[in-house]
Design a protein around this nucleic acid. Structure first.
Lengths: 250, 250
DNA sequence: CGAACGCTTGAGAGGCATCAAGAAACGTGG
DNA sequence: CCACGTTTCTTGATGCCTCTCAAGCGTTCG
C-alpha cells in the first residue's frame, strides 16, 4: 500500500537528505497502516485528543480552527509527503482540526514513533526541525499578506505557496497546478470571504498574472507574481550544512 | 555578565526540564559574550546573512519584515530567555530583520553551537523543537485573529500573549504587565494602524477588559478576555513525556 | 435530467485606513 | 526643577476595501 512505487515521505525527505538504510527502514515503518478519507471528512477533531500523527500519501488535507462566531481559519494545507501533526507533537490535545480537502489516503502512526526517530537519527531529527521551520515560514508569509496586503495579492500568495510545495515532490512540474481547493477554503487561509476570492481571481486573470483552464491554474509571468507578493521560494534553498549526521555520546 | 544572578535562558528551560550539569554547561557557554542594544537599534538586517543567533538577556526585541509598499509586519516579540533566530536556523540568510523594542542586552552565539547541543543532548533538542512549535502556535493564533477578528480582539490577543510569555520566566507575576511597545508596533503585529490600536485600547478600557495606569496594563477579568479571543495558555501545558532523555546508538 | 454544489455578479453596509491637527507624555539640557 | 522639543497617543472627518445578503449561472454527479 505504502510502497507501491515509492513512499512520498521518503521521496520528499530524499530531496534534502541522503538516507541510510537504517533511516529508510525507520521511516517505512511509519507507513505500514493506511486509511482512506473522503473529501470533507474530518480526520482530527478540534480540541480532541492527539495520539497519532499522519503521513499524507495521496490527496490534500488542511488544518483549521473555528472562531467563536463560527468563522474558520485554515492554517496549513498538507500535501503528499507531508507529516500532519508534526507541529503539534508537544501538545496533549489538538488545538486544531484536520480535514480532507480532497479524497485522500493517510498513514497514521503514534507519536511515540517520532520519539524513536529522534533517538536513532540525528539527521532526521534536524530535518524534522527544518520542516517545522518551513511550515513556520509559510504561515508568517500568510500572516504578513493577511495583515498588510490586498485581496488579490493574498490569493496570489496562496497559489504560489501551493505551487512551491508541490514542486518539492514533483520537481518536473510546470508553472501551473491543479487547484482542488474551493474558493471558500482559499479565503479561509488569508482571511477573505469566498466572494472576495472570486473577485480577486477575476482580477488576477485580467491583469495576466494567472491563467485559468478549469481547475488548472498557470502563471504566465511567475517572476512578476513572485515579486508582487514578495514571495521567495524557501523550499528549495535549505541550509543542510549544519545538520548533524550522527549523535555523539555525552 | 550572563550569570549575575542566573541566566534567563537556564531559568526558562528549567521551567520545562530538569537540566543535567553537562547540559547547564553547554547552555552557559552560549552566554559568554554580550552586547547592549539601544531601543530601535537593528540587530539583524532584513535579507542579511544569518551567522549568529541571540539569547535575550534583558529587554524586548522583535522580528519584522517590510512589504513592498513600505508597511511593516511584526512576527514575533522576543522576551528575556528567548532565543532569537531559532526558527530560522535552516536558512542561509535571514528573511527577517530583528530590532530592539526597548533598550536590551543580548548574547550572540554562532549557529554551529546549536549543532553541538543537538548532538550532545536529546532532551535539549526536543525542547528546542518544542520552543519552535510554541512560536508557531503563537503566530497561528495571531493569524486567526488578523484574518477573522475585529480590532479590539486583535489588540487584546497581543496583550494576552505577552502576559502569557512573560509568566514563563516570572511565575509570580500578577494579572498585568508593563507594556513598552508603541501602539504602532502592536498594530504591526496584527495588521492594524496605530490609530485603530488607539481606538481598540479605548474600547477595551471602556468595556472593562483592561485597565491602564501609564504603561501598566492589567486585566480585571482575565477569563472573559481569554474566552473573547479564544486564547488558551499553551505555554504552561507542554507534554514533555515523549521527550527522549538520552540518545541511542544506531 | 434534476438537484446539489460552487462560482459569479450586484447592491448596500460597516470597519478600518488615511490624512490632519491637537493633547499628553517623555527626555534633554539649561 | 523647569522649559523646550520630540515622540507618542488621541480625536475627528472622509474614503476605500471587504463583508454580508441575495440572486443568477455554471458544473458535476447521482
Amino acid at each position: 500500500m505504502a510502497g507501491e512505487n515509492q513512499s512520498c515521505l521518503i521521496r520528499k525527505i530524499s530531496y534534502y537528505l541522503d538516507l541510510t538504510d537504517d533511516e529508510k527502514k525507520l521511516l517505512s515503518r511509519l507507513e505500514e497502516t493506511g486509511r482512506d478519507l473522503k473529501r470533507d471528512e474530518i480526520l482530527v477533531e478540534e480540541a480532541g485528543p492527539l495520539k497519532d500523527m499522519y503521513i499524507v500519501g495521496r490527496g490534500w488535507l488542511y488544518t483549521y480552527t473555528h472562531t467563536m462566531d463560527g468563522r474558520r481559519q485554515i492554517f496549513e494545507v498538507h500535501f503528499p509527503g507531508d507529516i500532519v501533526g508534526a507541529s503539534q507533537a508537544p501538545f496533549e490535545r489538538s488545538a486544531y482540526g484536520v480535514a480532507a480537502a480532497t479524497d485522500a489516503h493517510v498513514c497514521p502512526f503514534p507519536k511515540s514513533s517520532l520519539n524513536e526517530i529522534f533517538v536513532r537519527s540525528a539527521g532526521l531529527t534536524a530535518l524534522f526541525y527544518t520542516f517545522a521551520v518551513l511550515d513556520h515560514a509559510t504561515i508568517m508569509d500568510r500572516l504578513r499578506a493577511t495583515g498588510r496586503m490586498g485581496a488579490a495579492e493574498r490569493v496570489l500568495l496562496v497559489l504560489l505557496q501551493c505551487l512551491a510545495r508541490l514542486r518539492i515532490t514533483n520537481p518536473d512540474m510546470q508553472d501551473g497546478l491543479e487547484m482542488p481547493l474551493r474558493q471558500e477554503l482559499i479565503g479561509d487561509m488569508v482571511g477573505l470571504s469566498n466572494i472576495s476570492v472570486s473577485h480577486a481571481v477575476k482580477e488576477l486573470s485580467e491583469t495576466g498574472l494567472i491563467e485559468r483552464d478549469g481547475r488548472y491554474i498557470s502563471f504566465p509571468n511567475l517572476d512578476r507574481a513572485r515579486s508582487l507578493t514578495d514571495f521567495s521560494d524557501r523550499f528549495y534553498s535549505i541550509d543542510t550544512a549544519w545538520f548533524p549526521r550522527r549523535w555523539q555520546a555525552p
